[in-house]
Amino acid sequence: MLLKVRAASEAREDEVTPRALFLSRRSVIAGGAAALAVGGMAPLLSGPAFAALDAKTTIQPPDAKLDAVTPQKSATTYNNFYEFGTGKTDPSEYAGTLKTRPWEVVVDGEVGKPMTFGIEDLLKFPLEERIYRLRCVEAWSMVIPWVGFPLAELLKRVEPTGSAKYVAFRTLHDPAQMPGQRLGVLNWPYTEGLRLDEAMHPLAILAVGMYGDVLPNQSGAPIRLVVPWKYGFKSIKSIVRITVTKDQPPTAWNRSQPFEYGFYANVNPDVDHPRWSQANERRVGDFFRRKTLAFNGYGEEVASLYSGMDLRKYF
């Protein structure tokens, strides 16, 4: 499947330059950390977990002013990850208990070559930086520079069979590492799913980093899904299993409250959530709300996936 992403969201060479500068500053910082590490803490600080990720920006919003990148501090201290508590600052405060090394992702189901990827293998996929809008179902949004690779690249390796229709994802289930799982906020483990064509879409990525660094634990380390045209809860974090299926897989929020959270969960200003108007959103850091865009502004790329579907019914 070859889908061309429209030029508007592709980064031009001249727009990438500041990013390279930013990275070179980062490597100086990383070098400093490595120098410090010689003093006895080398085994803790070295290794891929703490290396800055070098990746070229390939996709970004067409208007950098309108969609200015959210400050890193906001993106890493204000988010939902109920495995560590339901407060917005809980993940950043409590995700330290998550152990991201060693880490394996089992990929199985309707595939010719089921495989288990270690996190080291996953980091070897050609990494790109993609600056995406992130729209939470709670009507707030951010712009985040993710580092990752297309989910399609991983799926191609395992060779989905002819009967493959959907892809199911599962988060780690370990209450010792994820204390929020001791409470029945949701039916653990967290699960998500995509239709196979959505999963193969070039905009859908598996992220291993953000802001040029490896993912912090609270943001879904060591590997998470990012599907920018869907509400944030679809972008499942800390993935341990990816199963290609024939049937639509159950998804965590849909199981919890089926009338509020659909399987598709495409960002849609015309379909209200029972608790939040989806017509507008507040970009974190802004004072005024802004209008929410259909498919979170990625309509040109993805709307065709849903042609002929009643998006009010399949919300």
Binding site: T86, L183, V185, W253, Q257
Partner: peptide, 9 residues
């Protein structure tokens, strides 16, 4: 009770 997501204490 109604405004929070999921089952929270």
């Amino acid at each position: 009770v109604m405004l929070v997501k999921g089952w929270q204490i």
